[in-house]
């Protein structure tokens, strides 16, 4: 059986908020190392890969592999009944028809319990190769969100270019063009504001802003975001969570002019 207790319901609420635009139904794969999820959007352009390590829960128990097939819209409806600060416990039997969610408020005088029906989801699983990315950019997640939003007003696509000058986000549309350049920046007192650029070779790739905007819904999960790029491979956008848990998005590049 599965029993996984989260100190704050906010984590699961934010995870669901972050992925439900991309994916409507998916399996939460539970095993003794934690709860994972991998799903592609309908158009097979973007993929979300999330893993909440067992250390992110206290306690965590999962005796055997269990796939919880969940409709994220339905899960979100149930999670709306949880306050951000509530303690959230997920429970399921070994071959479950439902997942049980319990929300306890901080003063433990209110306990809400919901059963969410599960579904059989036959999901394609992609092997993501380990990649030595040519460029890795870490920046405040709010900054990435702002760049994505601002450029979305101009164009459907953005070209992310990384060279020894730094990183630039450029787009061109009917009304004109825009370009945002970021340079390395270190703030010892506020490391969340740092911009770090590590590059082994120059990279320039074009991506659909619509999907980047979707990824940015995860901004509330982490103060920093990491963009990993290599020429001619999908972009990885990673939001690191506590205890080595993570939510990663992959986006296939656009090609040609």
């Amino acid at each position: 059986m599965l029993e996984a207790r989260l100190e704050q319901a906010a984590l699961l609420k934010k995870v669901v908020d972050a992925i439900k635009e991309l994916v409507q139904e998916c399996n939460f794969d539970c095993n003794d190392s934690g709860i994972g999820l991998q799903a592609m959007d309908n158009s097979h352009v973007a993929l979300v890969s999330m893993f909440l390590k067992s250390e992110s829960f206290s306690p965590f128990r999962c005796d055997r592999n269990i796939a919880l097939g969940i409709n994220l819209n339905a899960l979100q409806k149930v999670l709306r009944a949880a306050q951000n600060e509530d303690i959230l416990t997920l429970k399921a039997e070994d071959a479950p028809d439902v997942v049980n969610l319990v929300f306890e408020n901080a003063t433990a005088d209110r306990i809400s319990e919901y059963d969410l029906k599960l579904m059989d989801i036959d999901q394609e699983h992609l092997g993501i190769p380990d990649t030595d990315y040519a460029a890795q950019i870490s920046m405040p997640s709010s900054e990435f969100q702002r760049i994505t939003r601002d450029l979305s007003a101009i164009s459907e696509s953005v070209t992310i270019e990384c060279n020894k000058e730094g990183v630039s986000f450029a787009c061109e549309g009917d009304i004109g063009k825009g370009n945002i350049k970021l340079r390395q920046y270190t703030n010892v007192d506020k490391p969340a504001e740092n911009v770090e650029v590590n590059m082994t070779e120059p990279v320039a790739l074009t991506f659909a802003l619509k999907y980047l905007g979707n990824f940015c819904k995860a901004s509330g999960l982490s103060e920093q975001v990491r963009l990993c790029l290599s020429n001619e491979v999908p972009l990885m956008v990673e939001y690191a969570l506590a205890n080595n848990s993570y939510i990663r998005f992959y986006l296939a590049p656009k090609i040609g002019d």
């Binding site: 592609m40 097979h44 352009v45 973007a46 993929l47 394609e124 699983h125 992609l126 092997g127 993501i128 190769p129 696509s157 074009t206 659909a208 491979v233 999908p234 992959y250 296939a252 590049p253 656009k254 090609i255 040609g256 002019d257």
Partner: peptide, 14 residues
């Protein structure tokens, strides 16, 4: 207009 690639061109089904 650039053409959108498909992810399955890069990642193999397992």
């Amino acid at each position: 207009t650039p053409i959108q690639n498909d992810l399955s061109e890069f990642f193999v089904m397992v």
